Computed example of a mutant assay.
Amino acid sequence: MRDADIVAGRARPGQGAGRLVGSDRVLVVLKELAAHPGGVGLDELTRVVGSPKPTVHRALRSLRRAGLAGQDARGHYLLGDEFLRLAFAHHEARPEHVRLRPVLESLAARFGETTHYAVLDGREVVYRAKVDPPSGAARLTSTVGGRNPAHSTGVGKLLLAYRLTTRDDVAAWAGDRPMERRTANTLTTAAALAGELAAIRARGYAVDDEENETGVACLALPVYALAPGTPSGALSISALTYRTPLSTLVEAVDEVRGVLGRLGEGS
């Protein structure tokens, strides 16, 4: 396994971490701190990262000098205030996030379900914004910055449809790595995915029929924040099927398009 895979989050920090050097090790330590919002001790951090304690301590010292890590009264390490300031300032300044917030809020209120804005990153989607419904006891566990496989999500398939326009494109993207089966409904072959992407291009929207998580369905539409011809991301309404079945979302697709259009983000 390559060191870059570890830093990019495609492996647990301890897997092969002994090969990490310099800035790579600092990044692994930083990512591990993010997994412990209540703080983590040096011994546990050393064990998970898989590097000698003095080495991990040097990485922590570098992060603390930059304000990216801190230490609480118990001696536990956690993300620093400067890291949080940079992360939130950057997120709030994203043009697509600012422009789409009213759309997400409007649709979340209309359907009583969670709305997302996501972008494609290789074989995964990254959620850039999320709005929970104003009421309702059960809500989704997705988070801003969280990831899911592109092939099993409505937003992912929607964006792949505009990137992979031929069967050869899909086959090259899928490569030799198996596509994870998240549920019984997940598409796991290049042929099946190619057919689905062609259907998405024809109708202009994508669905997730409990393909990523059992009991959750999704309707996704393209968002054109940067250029009119290529989606910069995708908007989705993700619903708990026991209260909002997929058919209800699909029947309202023109209404959703209208909301996008009125706010200057039409598809």
Rank of each mutant, 00 (worst) to 15 (best):
D132V: 00
E92Q: 15
G175S: 07
R85C: 06
L164E: 03
L104K: 02
A171F: 12
K157E: 10
A191Y: 07
R101N: 05
A118C: 10
T186K: 08
A118V: 03
R177P: 01
E96R: 06
H90G: 13
L107I: 01
A137I: 09
A174I: 05
D169R: 07
R177D: 11
L120Q: 02
A192E: 15
T186Q: 08
K130E: 10
A129G: 12
S142K: 02
E92K: 10
A109N: 08
R94M: 14
V170A: 07
R110T: 09
K157W: 05
V144S: 01
L187Q: 08
R94D: 12
R167F: 11
T188D: 13
P133F: 08
A184K: 13
L197I: 06
V144M: 04
T188I: 11
D176C: 08
S135Y: 14
V119Q: 09
L197T: 03
A171N: 10
A172H: 14
L107W: 00
A108D: 02
Y162L: 06
F111T: 04
H91F: 05
T166V: 09
L160M: 12
A172Y: 13
L120Y: 01
L86S: 06
A199Q: 14
L187N: 04
D132S: 12
S135A: 12
Y162A: 12
E96C: 07
P178L: 01
L86H: 13
V144K: 01
L193R: 04
T188G: 09
A137S: 12
A137M: 14
T153R: 07
A192L: 07
G156T: 07
T183A: 04
L164K: 06
D176A: 15
T165D: 03
A118M: 08
L104E: 00
A138Q: 14
L158Y: 03
A171C: 09
A118R: 00
D121E: 15
R201L: 11
P134T: 00
A93S: 15
A93E: 14
A89N: 11
Y162E: 15
R182G: 03
V144R: 00
